[in-house]
């Protein structure tokens, strides 16, 4: 059963990710991104990160992809682009080789250090029917306990992002020409 869930979710994530890169219409690419995000969310649930799976669906699939679609439609760039043309000769071959090298390198690193991952944490509390909030409770204790400073700084980051975006995207009102 575990294996079946893993294979199904991994296939979802991989098919979606290839779709993001290969589909020539930006709207289809965004839809493929949703598929990937759902697949990763299933893998989160499988590994006991229930809260993060929910946040992944709500924030990523819900908010961020909708934002992408909104911008695509707002700008009217929902036209298929011709992917046959390769403006820089040899770019795809080099990119493919770099990607394959990255997979090879990371896989080798994972396989050689398989036994080096030590189970030395304090333990993850599993979400069960008796304690449905175990995962959220533990995550909250970590965020509001050990990492409360980082959490507070996050609010500054979000504020800066919002103010910056407003300034970037706003059309400045025409300044009246200074009459001589």
């Amino acid at each position: 059963m575990e294996l079946f869930v893993f294979v199904a979710a991994a296939l979802m994530a991989l098919v979606g990710s290839v779709g993001v890169v290969m589909r020539n219409n930006p709207v289809h690419a965004a839809m493929s991104l949703v598929l990937t995000l759902f697949g990763v969310a299933v893998l989160f649930v499988q590994q006991g990160a229930h809260f993060l799976a929910a946040v992944q669906i709500i924030v990523y699939a819900g908010a961020i992809v909708v934002l992408f679609l909104f911008v695509i439609m707002l700008l009217g760039v929902d036209r298929a682009e011709n992917l046959r043309i390769e403006p820089l000769a040899g770019q795809r071959a080099v990119a493919g080789a770099a990607g394959a090298a990255m997979v090879g390198l990371l896989t080798a690193a994972v396989l050689t250090s398989e036994s080096a991952v030590l189970e030395d944490g304090k333990g993850l509390s599993a979400t069960t029917l008796d304690s449905p909030d175990a995962n959220i409770r533990q995550l909250a204790e970590s965020i509001f306990g050990d990492n409360v400073f980082a959490f507070e700084i996050t609010s500054v980051l979000l504020l800066v992002a919002v103010v910056g975006t407003v300034i970037l995207a706003r059309r400045l009102p025409k300044q009246p020409e200074a009459a001589a």
Partner: peptide
């Protein structure tokens, strides 16, 4: 790792 490489490409 595979997902990361696909994104990178």
């Amino acid at each position: 790792a595979v997902l990361f490489a696909v994104g990178m490409v």
